[in-house]
Write a protein that binds this DNA or RNA. Structure first.
Lengths: 228, 228
DNA sequence: GTCTATATATCGATAGAC
DNA sequence: GTCTATCGATATATAGAC
């Protein structure tokens, strides 16, 4: 407990040299004493999420990995949730950009399918970020910036649905919602291993989600009349 | 660290009396000293999951609520995961029964829709059990009994899909998988609040999942040819 | 089968020095 | 802005008494 642990850097790797010298700027070997601990924390959090999942993530481990004191992160983030929220915001931005890019032009049904495919592929390619966005159990009322950042990805479902059902906003909303839920289901089952593992599984899940989106667009009339 | 902490009961509230007297048996007030701690633990775990989520569940809190020592549960469950797995097995059984019951007879597309609806309704009605089943992050290789118990619910998707696509097992598997993923997506988004809250939201999500299942059954030909 | 007591680990967060 | 030091809480799991 009170052992003078030299720290996870072992005493050899950490910041170079020993005492007071070795200011960063001359020979900082990848350590983060250069004034952007905030960004470094977000990067490291993404790493840790990828390795051990959201559940196991801790501020202390992030600090350890960056070679800073456990108190340092609290200069930049009020608490654990705030750091995870910052990661979720980054995730939402990247997801939105990707969906906009991949579901850009084309006929409305294909745009819906492309949005679903992009959603699932993002989950596969950026597993850690996706988990931060949807699996961190963030209190949405405390971090409205996450929902704000997620707006673009929602729009990527809503916009083609609206193009497909002009003049019937409620029906368009239902179609967008159904496609989004379908994509989401494929994404989380994929991460859960239900489609197998590896690139093959990711392609299967993404392709199936896209196909399902087409089928939903095709059968959009059904969505307006839920069975009893 | 070495302070003589009297324990979380504070020293005043705990089990009655002070010294060695007050054995249970004469006046046990609803406590669980009657020999079925195992079942009581499962019940209490379900309660706790419903109140605070899987993430926050702990063996210690379950023990506290039952008025037993924190060590007692380890007589019945090797560790936290084993207890959660037991709850997941119960969840899988109930889900399977419900899906079999509600998706019983009728035309294949309607059975698929009923299976999807039952899946979402189960998530809504038995939120805690559903979370134990899908959100506990259980190591499936350690607890194969969970997958075994979940077989019936999977079958409720597979069986009508096979009836709809006789002689084409791969296509049937894809349809079943797509409907299951769609139902799952609606379920988790519902629990995440994406459909709103309350009975209304549950009905919306379940109805939409059922409608989507019909649309997928209708457009099943698309599922066999995933877009590029 | 359950209890007491404890070992062992972390963690989140804060206070105050530099 | 970062570090040292530490508080307080909580958890999982085990050993041995009853």
């Amino acid at each position: 407990m009170t052992t003078p642990d030299p720290g996870p850097n072992g005493g050899a790797a950490g910041r170079a040299g020993g005492g007071a010298g070795s200011r960063p700027g001359s020979a900082r070997r990848g350590r983060y004493h250069h004034g952007d601990l905030r960004a470094a924390l977000i990067d490291t959090t993404v790493e840790l999420l990828g390795e051990r999942g959201v559940q196991a993530f801790s501020m202390a481990e992030a600090s350890r990995r960056l070679g800073v004191a456990v108190a340092a992160p609290y200069r930049h983030f009020a608490d654990r949730g705030a750091l995870l929220a910052a990661v979720a915001v980054r995730a939402a931005r990247l997801l939105g950009e990707r969906m906009e890019r991949e579901a850009g032009p084309g006929p409305a049904p294909q745009r819906l399918a492309a949005a679903a495919r992009a959603y699932v592929r993002f989950a596969a390619d950026q597993r850690a970020l996706f988990q931060a966005l949807v699996g961190a159990g963030l209190d949405k009322s405390r971090y409205p910036e996450v929902e704000e950042a997620a707006r673009a990805s929602i729009q990527a479902f809503v916009s083609p649905a609206a193009a497909l059902l002009p003049g019937d906003a409620p029906a368009a909303a239902r179609l967008a919602s159904a496609v989004a839920a379908t994509a989401h289901g494929h994404a989380v089952l994929l991460l859960d291993g239900a489609f197998g593992h590896g690139e093959q599984a990711a392609g299967d899940a993404a392709g199936q989600a896209a196909a399902a989106a087409l089928a939903l667009a095709d059968g959009r009339a059904r969505l307006t009349t839920p069975a009893p």
